[in-house]
């Protein structure tokens, strides 16, 4: 089981790709789907790799994603 998870608010995303590029464990990819503003939001491709480090959250200029570790 993954150590952490990411939560994505698709409608806030402007598709910059920062989270996808800088995720250290490559959890994310840009989706081919559009949100209602016409941007490609990220989606999760390797959930099991998520460490919950929240680097995606620190990079996201639109406050549209964050990561956290599961409580143990």
């Amino acid at each position: 089981m993954a150590k952490g998870f990411v939560s994505i608010t698709v409608e806030r995303c402007k598709g910059c790709g920062f989270c996808v590029e800088f995720c250290p464990t490559h959890v994310l990819a840009l989706s081919s789907a559009y949100n209602s503003k016409g941007y490609h939001a990220p989606h999760i491709v390797s959930a099991e790799k998520c460490s919950g480090c929240d680097l995606c959250g620190m990079y996201c200029p639109d406050f549209a994603i964050f990561g956290a570790r599961y409580a143990r």
Binding site: V6, V10, H43, I44, A47
Partner: peptide, 9 residues
């Protein structure tokens, strides 16, 4: 609309 993606966890 603050939709959140379907997530596999």
């Amino acid at each position: 609309n603050e939709t959140t993606l379907e997530v596999p966890y």
